[in-house]
Write a protein that binds this DNA or RNA. Structure first.
Lengths: 174, 174, 174, 174
DNA sequence: AGATAATCGAGACGGTACGTCCGGTCTTCCC
DNA sequence: GGGAAGACCGGACGTACCGTCTCGATTATCT
C-alpha cells in the first residue's frame, strides 16, 4: 500500500506476493479493508503508539509524546500508509472503528489519568475530556497528512501550546 | 457518491446517468477524482463555507461560524460526501490541494484579519497562525467524521473554549 | 449426472452428497470419469442389457431385443445419462473402452452365435461380423440420442428391416 | 480443441491466443459450446461434406461419398475434433442441433433425390427415408470414433453392402 | 445553401481485477 | 489408523470497469 496506494493495491497482487491462493485470502478476510483492519490491530502498519509519560510536567510530557508521533509520520512511507488507511476507512465503518480505536484508544486511559492529576495539581483547569484532546491533536495531524502538508516534530510545540494555553497565551504566571 | 461511496462510483455509471458517452467525460476530466475536484471548485459538493463575522467578540464570532459548519456536516449525506472526498483526496494530490484550498482557504484571510484585530484588542496573545487555527478546527471535525462519530453544533463550544483558553482554563479575568 | 449433466457434476458435490471426504474419493478413483467407468461396470447407470433370444426367427429375435434397448433409452433420464457417459468417454479413452465393452460386449457372443446359426439355416448370407452389426444398431441409436431426436421402440422395425434386407428390400421370397 | 480436448479448452486460453479480451468473446458468444456451434456453421471444424454423386450406379456413388467422409475422419486430429464436438453437444442442445444439421443436413436432399431415382430405376425397393440412411451411416462412424476404434475408408464397403443388401446378401441377380 | 468541421452518443475493444467455484494435494483430528 | 473435514495453491469462471478507439448522427461554421 505504501508503494501504490490503497486503490491500486489488489487482492490478487497480495495473493501473488504471498504465494498464496486468492481463495485463502477470502477465507480469512471479507475484503481488502478487513485485511487492513487486522494489520492495524496487529500493529503491522501504524507504528506502536507510546503513551504520555508522567514526569510531573504536563507540557513536557505531552510535547515528547506528540513529537514521537509526528516523528513517525514524518516518514513519507508512513504518511502514505496513513492516507491509505484513511481512504479505506472512509468506505468501511468497521475499519474506521478499528483505526479510531488504534489511534485514540491506547492513549486515552493514560491521558485521562494524566489530565486528572494535572487538574488536581493545578496545572490545568478544564472540563475537556481526554478523548477530545486526543481527537484534536490527531485530527490536526491527519488533516495535514491528507492535505500533503509537511508533518514533523516541530509542529508539536504550536499544538501543545495552543492546547494548554489557548490563543490567549500562557497567563499562568502573569 | 453520497449513495454508494467513492469507490463504488464508476465513470461508466456517471456517463450512463448523464446520458453521455464515456469519451465525453474523458475529454473533459482526466480521472474520477478530477471530476470531484471540479465539483468542489464549483461548490457542488461542499456547502459553501461562511467566514467568521466580526462583531467584536471573537469567541462568539468563532462559535457561530463553527456551529454553522458543524450544522452542515451533521447531515449524514454531507458527512458521507466528505468521506468520499477524503477517500479520493488520499489518492490524488491534486484533489487534495483543491480540497484543502476549498476548506481552509476562504476562511483564511478573514480569520487572519480577525485574529490580528483580536490580538491588537488584547483579546488573544498568540503567535499561532490563522491557518493553524483552521487546521486544528477542521482537522478535529474531519477526524470525527472519518471515525463516524457524531458531529453536531454542540461540539463547537468545547473546541472554541479549548482553542481560546487552553486546558488551563479561562484566566482572562483572573 | 442425470440432474445437471456431466460437466456440472463436480467431485466436491459427489463427496458432499455422500458425506464423504474428498480425499476418500481420490483414494479410490483417479478422476470423475473413472467413477463413471466403475458405475457402468457395476451396472449402476446403463440398464442391464439383454441379449437376443433364439426362437428360430432371427428377425423377431433382433426386433424384440432392440425394442427393449430402445424402450429404456426412451426415458429422458436414461437418455441424459447416456449423453453424460458419451461426453465423459469423449475425453477419457479408458471410460470409452469400458463403455464400448459394456454396450457392445455382452451381446457380441450371443449375436455371433445367432448369426452363425442364421447363416447355417440360410436365413442370412453375409460376411458382416456380429460386432459390426451391433455397432451399426447402437451407433444409430447413440447418434439420435446425441442429436436429441426421439428414440422409441418404433425405430426398431426400420433398423432391423434395413439390416436384414437392405434398401433393396426383402427378396427372400422373390 | 484438437490439442487438449473440449474440457481442457478454456475461454481464457482462446482469448489469450487470439490476443483478445475475454469480454469480447462473451460479447459475441454465450458459452464455449456456442463458439463451437459457430465454428461448425462456418465450416471451420468439420471438413465440408460432399454429397453423393449420381453416376447411375447407386452403390458406387454411396461408396465414393462415404469413403471420402471416412478419409477425413481417419486423421486423428479430425477424430479428436469430432469427439470434442460430441462432448460439447452432449451438454448443449443448441450445439447438438447445429451439429446434427451440419452432419445430416447437406446430404439429405441429394440423398433423398438419389434414392428416389434409384427406386424408380429398380435399384432399390425400400421405404426407409434418406435421413434414416444418413443417420445409420454417420451413427456407426461416430460410434466408432467415440469408442476410439479405427476409422478408415475400408469401412465403407461393409457399411454400404449391408445398407443396400442387408445381411441376407445381394439376391438381386440370384 | 451546401460543404466542412467539430462534437456528441454509443459502444466495441484489449485489459485488469473482482469474487466464486472447483481441481487435486496435504494436514488435522476424531472414532 | 482410516476417514470426515476442510485448508491449501492454483487456475478458470463470468462480470464490472478501466481508458482507448472507432463509428455514424447531429450541430455549427464557413465558404
Amino acid at each position: 500500500m505504501s508503494e501504490v496506494g490503497y486503490e491500486q493495491m489488489s487482492i490478487e497482487g497480495i495473493a501473488a506476493r504471498a504465494h498464496v491462493g486468492k481463495q485463502t485470502i477470502y477465507r480469512w478476510w471479507r475484503s481488502k479493508s478487513a485485511i487492513l483492519a487486522e494489520c492495524v490491530l496487529e500493529g503491522l502498519i501504524l507504528p506502536s503508539q507510546d503513551v504520555p509519560e508522567d514526569t510531573g510536567d504536563l507540557r513536557e510530557d505531552l510535547l515528547g509524546w506528540l513529537r514521537r508521533a509526528l516523528q513517525d509520520l514524518g516518514d513519507p512511507a508512513n504518511a502514505s500508509l496513513l492516507r491509505g488507511l484513511v481512504s479505506a476507512a472512509a468506505d468501511d465503518p468497521d475499519l474506521a472503528a478499528v483505526l479510531y480505536e488504534r489511534l485514540t484508544g491506547p492513549q486515552e486511559a493514560t491521558m485521562a489519568e494524566r489530565l486528572r492529576r494535572a487538574e488536581a495539581g493545578g496545572e490545568i483547569d478544564s472540563t475537556l475530556t481526554s478523548t477530545a484532546v486526543i481527537e484534536m491533536l490527531f485530527g490536526t495531524i491527519v488533516y495535514r497528512i491528507l492535505s500533503r502538508l509537511d508533518v514533523g516534530p516541530e509542529l508539536a510545540d504550536g499544538l501543545i501550546d495552543t492546547l494548554l494555553n489557548g490563543l490567549r497565551g500562557d497567563r499562568r504566571n502573569s
